[in-house]
C-alpha cells in the first residue's frame, strides 16, 4: 500500500478545500440555512406536524442529505476532473498507485469535506430549529456511508465528464430533483398510493428515510432496507471505479 501517495492526494484535495473556504463550506452552509430560516423558523411554525414531528425539525435530515449528496458529488467530480482538464492527470497515471489508493485519496478527501459540511449544517440548524438525534451512531453511519457512496459516484462522474457542463448536469438535473422528490420536505406516506409506489424507485427516498429514522425513529421504509440500498449503491460505484481503472476508460489513450 502506497500510504505516502494516499496522504499526498488527500492533503492536496483538503488544501484545495481550505483554499476555497467560501465556495466549499460557507456557501452551502448559508444556502441550507436559508431553508431552515424560511421553512423551519418562519413558515414551519404555521404548519402542522408530519409523523408527529414539528415540520421545521422534520425537514432537517432531508436538507442535510440534499447538501451532502450535491456536495459529495461536486467535490469528488471536480477533484478528478480538474487534473484531467489541466493535464496534470499524467502524474497520477504514471505514479506507482493502485486504483484503491487513488480512491482513498480523492474520495476520502471528498467524503471528509462532505461529512464536515453535514455536521456544520446540523450545528447551524440548531440555531433556528430545535431537534434531537435518537440514534447518534446510526446518524453518523448514514452520514459517512452516504458521503462516501456519493463521492464515489462523483468520482465516476468526474472521469466520465469531458466538459464543465456535463460535470454540472448530473447534480443539477438529476440529483437535486430526486432529492426534492425523495421525501426531503414531506413523508412518502403523504403521497397518493400510486405515487408512493413510484417514489420507491427513487434511491434518495431510502437515504432520507434512513437518515430521518436516526433522528426521530420514524421512517418511510424499514431502516434495514435503507442501509442495504445505500450499501448496494456504494457497491455498484466501487465496481464501476474498479472497471474504469482496469480498462483506463477516459483516462488512458
Amino acid at each position: 500500500m502506497n500510504f505516502h501517495a494516499i496522504r499526498a492526494i488527500y492533503r492536496f484535495e483538503m488544501a484545495r478545500t481550505f483554499r476555497t473556504l467560501m465556495q466549499s463550506i460557507a456557501s452551502p452552509v448559508l444556502s441550507t440555512s436559508l431553508y431552515f430560516v424560511v421553512f423551519g423558523a418562519a413558515i414551519g411554525s404555521r404548519m402542522g406536524e408530519v409523523d408527529g414531528i414539528h415540520y421545521g425539525a422534520f425537514i432537517i435530515p432531508g436538507l442535510v442529505m440534499l447538501s451532502l449528496l450535491t456536495e459529495s458529488i461536486s467535490n469528488a467530480s471536480f477533484g478528478i476532473y480538474m487534473p484531467k482538464w489541466s493535464g496534470t492527470i499524467y502524474e497520477l497515471l504514471s505514479a506507482p498507485v493502485s486504483s484503491a489508493e487513488v480512491i482513498l485519496g480523492y474520495v476520502g478527501a471528498a467524503t471528509t469535506k462532505s461529512v464536515m459540511l453535514g455536521l456544520l449544517i446540523l450545528a447551524t440548524a440548531r440555531l433556528f430549529v430545535p431537534y434531537h438525534i435518537a440514534h447518534p451512531f446510526w446518524m453518523l453511519a448514514f452520514l459517512l456511508l452516504t458521503a462516501f457512496s456519493f463521492s464515489l459516484f462523483g468520482f465516476i462522474l468526474g472521469i466520465w465528464a469531458d466538459s464543465f457542463e456535463k460535470l454540472q448536469i448530473v447534480p443539477l438535473m438529476i440529483v437535486t430533483p430526486l432529492t426534492f422528490l425523495g421525501g426531503s420536505f414531506y413523508s412518502i406516506s403523504m403521497l397518493p398510493p400510486l405515487w408512493q409506489k413510484i417514489a420507491l424507485f427513487n434511491p434518495v427516498v431510502y437515504l432520507v428515510s434512513g437518515f430521518r429514522w436516526s433522528f426521530y425513529g420514524v421512517a418511510d421504509v424499514a431502516v434495514g432496507i435503507s442501509v442495504a440500498m445505500t450499501a448496494l449503491f456504494m457497491l455498484i460505484c466501487l465496481v464501476a471505479v474498479w472497471w474504469i481503472f482496469k480498462t483506463g476508460y477516459r483516462l488512458k489513450r
Partner: peptide
C-alpha cells in the same frame, strides 16, 4: 521513473513547494 512531459501541465493555484512535495508523496516517498 520520472517524467517531464512536453506540455506545461501544472496545478495553477498551488505553490511550487506544495506541488513538488505532492509529487514526491505520490511516488511513494
Amino acid at each position: 521513473i520520472g517524467l517531464v512531459p512536453q506540455e506545461l501541465h501544472t496545478d495553477a493555484f498551488e505553490s511550487v513547494w506544495a506541488t513538488v512535495n505532492f509529487s514526491r508523496g505520490l511516488f511513494g516517498k
